[in-house]
Design a protein around this nucleic acid. Sequence first.
RNA 1: GCUCAGUUCGUCUAGGGGUUAGGACGUGUCCCUUUCACGGACAAAACACGGGUUCGAUUCCCGUACCGAGUACCA
Length: 518
Amino acid sequence: MEREVRVRFAPSPTGPLHIGGVRTALYNYLFAKKHGGKMFLRIEDTDQDRFVPGAEEYIQNALAWCGIQLDESPWHGGSFGPYRQSERKEAGIYGQYAQRLVDEGKAYYAFDTKEELEEMRKRLEAAKVVSPQYNAITRATMKNSLTLPEDEVKARLASGQAYVIRIKMPKKEEIRFHDLIRGWIVVHSSTLDDKVLMKSDGMPTYHLANIVDDHLMQTTHVIRGEEWLPSAPLHVLLYRYLGWEETMPKFAHLPLLLKPDGEGKLSKRDGDKFGFSVFPLLWKDSENSANSSSGFREDGYLPDAFINFLAFLGWNPGTQQELFSMQELIEAFTVERIGKSGVKFDINKAKWFNQQYIKAKPNEELATYLLADLQKNNIACEPAKAIKIVGLLKEKTTFPQDFYKEGVYFFNTPTQYDEAVVSKKWNQEVVTVLQSFHTTLQADNQPFEAAHIKHLLHEIIEAKGIKIGGVMQGIRVALTGIGSGSDLMEVMAILGKPEVLTRIQNALQSLQGRVLAK
RNA sequence: GCUCAGUUCGUCUAGGGGUUAGGACGUGUCCCUUUCACGGACAAAACACGGGUUCGAUUCCCGUACCGAGUACCA
């Protein structure tokens, strides 16, 4: 097994890429890079009915945002293309293999209509058959090339009648394979059915297409969701039937991402229900806006935080370290450390990761978020000022949009004051201190810096024999309009002396009657 | 129903025949403090159940329960 590691991510373009899909892509990517191999993307668009315009572009954008870099794909190209199954079908790639299986007696034509299949199911259910399916037993009662006379089969085929190709599942045979995460899996063929390999529209089903493509594209490892585990035996059998067992990829079936309340797979509805996104990016459904969904990016998650969070959903490094860059993840990643059990989705952890990443970012970078939000609100601001504000606020910030939310008071001279704070904290002492402070400030000519401001203010407070705690909240509300925020001295320094003087004056005037009214 | 998986604090998990079963998120209390946060400290909180194997099982085996996935001419 000296083959170069080649893994694939194979989404179908049926809508926005789900967060579970992103995690699958991520694990594939980490694995490929860890082993110096390649990762490619293949679009599995064999179901034309479910094709959604824009989905492919969404997948591309989502992976790019996450920093998952593909070596080959429909849009990057590569030497194993085409990378869309619809195009591969046009190129005649699948038909020959289906035909080979039929010729070798490992698959057969079936002419049953939808109604006939439905009828069979009903009949079997009525007869209380344990598992009503098209299988080694029931195929004898259906219309297919195994039951029909040879010339009738030929006639039907020649007349252009619709047909599918089904695998001829052996009656009794143990199918076993090794899963990198779960160990040996053994399934008896009698529990499997004669899955359709080639649909009546000439398209292969996933089952055939993924085996043919993974073989042709020299895939060494198939890392995919656990929902594929039940059909893995079928895939293994297909490799065997096609004579490709020697180079069959190794399998790793990932644990599923579950709803926060633990009732099943995480789905789009859960995002709405629990108030968070289950998609990396905003998805706009052009036909039905109700199908649109918010994305982690738009919610304010940083891509590296999102990736770090996602990596830990079902995997851990076995150490106490929790913060990992993509490069560190690549180095630390092993399939052996992927868990077996389903993982419930906890958005709190995602928030925590985001907070950690915000804190670690340089102020210059964070300032761009504030600046952008300010611009949206037509507020002008010097980058230098934004950098200072952001530096002050970052400790209490989870999302980039918090800078604007928490920091608007830097830009809006308050016209209203938080009533709860005013009624509790606005008193004669505050008024007195503010008055002296105003006078002192006007006379002062030292640089308007936090330490100096603090010194001046404390001098006044102490001279009057007042306790700091009783007066600060009032001063804060006078200056910012609200009762909470970052260090007031720093806030004033950023505000600048003229603005501080104005605000003190305003507050003294606006709240004039409030002390007496008490 | 059947097949296949899985089961350690509320959640993500470490561990693994003998441990005070460890960490993180969240929660609570306290400290810091000009408030909110941040930070610090502490606390509550888990081996699904029943058999077996064993001197000893949370760990290994077998059952049961529960949970999940699959059971389409969807992927």
